[in-house]
Write a protein that binds this DNA or RNA. Structure first.
Lengths: 198, 198
DNA sequence: CGTTGATCTGAACGATCCGTTCCGTCACTA
DNA sequence: TAGTGACGGAACGGATCGTTCAGATCAACG
């Protein structure tokens, strides 16, 4: 999916006292490509700057921490992922989980989230970024799936958060242990347990 | 002649052509203390060597990677954690999860596991260590809980692995997002969902 | 009793990355 | 025209990594 598009090292100077959109795009593209090609292991601000033909101070000006850049990459990609509404909880969860794993596999987003979680273990600011600026927003569509199911009476409204946490945990442990290959039967069985539909 | 009484970092020379148990104990104690005091953020081989009064080559000889040392610390601590057998799945899971979170909070084990998972995201060897040398062994007691429940007919034997994965995911996401404070009601509600006992 | 071999520490190495600072250049704006 | 702020580049001090070397120690072996 991610083809290497090495920008020729041409000079991209300032365009005056305002942010240069070309620079922003070049940095984002470099970060995307680096994550997609080498995963989080090969990700560093230095290498992003090299690839983007940008200065490190420029990157640190707009993305003050590594977590900021990872979140920006994930958010930019996440527009391609939409939560389904098929009218039944297990079907919604299964469909969305399959889509999510494919989304993680086929681009930089999976590696970005891995890095976001890994970084959070080392710095207090990373943990805060993960919880407040990532989880809080990225979980909304899935929470909506559970909320709709509660509206239909499939689960109790008070159970939404508990079951949502289970869904998150299942996906995290698969992502972080490197097992997000396509496995529809496994996903469907697991979603049934999470939904409580035995 | 030693003029200064440096209690922990005294000179500890070789004892011949065999491993020095004092050195091993000093390294393990240093790693434990560092993790317990500063968490994974302050954990480095350099600092462990400083605290243990050991040379870095000595550490790298016996624990070739950071993951090895983290696993060693976790394993040494885990002797204090035993899985219960209360005759009923939800009770076993709730009791064990409460114990596990306390175990993670009150010593170096939680930070060690955080680091183990974080390291795994950067290096292929770390990921392998996590899966093959940690998960495979550490999950056995909990798998036994599910297996006993299957023997009693509480769940189907074919569901053991799926429900076990959900249990792992729940604990990981709480640990990695820094929320393993004591919360018995939350744990009990979640264990009920995992056990399928609505 | 001497040789061999494996171990221990400490010092140093090259490399990487971090986050920051300074500088000269540039283009928009007032 | 003067001011402002972004840009790239170079360099910095600091930390850590994983490795290599040297010197000292002591057990096991012949």
């Amino acid at each position: 999916m991610a083809t290497v598009t090495e920008t020729p090292p041409r000079r991209r100077a300032s365009i005056g006292s305002r942010r240069n959109p070309e620079t922003e795009a070049a940095v984002m593209a470099a970060a995307r490509g680096l994550l997609a090609e080498q995963g989080y292991g090969g990700f560093s601000i230095e290498e992003v700057a090299r690839r983007a033909g940008a200065g490190k101070p420029t990157i640190y000006r707009w993305w003050p921490s590594k977590s900021d850049l990872l979140i920006a990459v994930y958010d930019a990609e996440a527009a391609a992922l939409r939560a389904p509404d098929l009218g039944e909880l297990v079907r919604d969860l299964s469909r969305h989980t399959i889509d999510l794993w494919r989304f993680w596999r086929s681009g930089p987003a999976g590696a970005a989230l891995c890095g976001l979680i890994a970084d959070a273990q080392g710095s207090g600011t990373g943990l805060e970024a993960l919880r407040e600026r990532f989880l809080a927003e990225r979980l909304a569509p899935v929470r909506a799936i559970f909320a709709r199911a509660a509206g239909r009476g499939e689960i109790k409204p008070a159970e939404v958060e508990d079951r949502l946490a289970l869904w998150v945990g299942f996906n995290w442990v698969r992502l972080l242990s490197g097992r997000i290959e396509d496995d529809a039967p496994l996903i469907r069985r697991t979603m049934k347990v999470i939904a409580g539909s035995t």
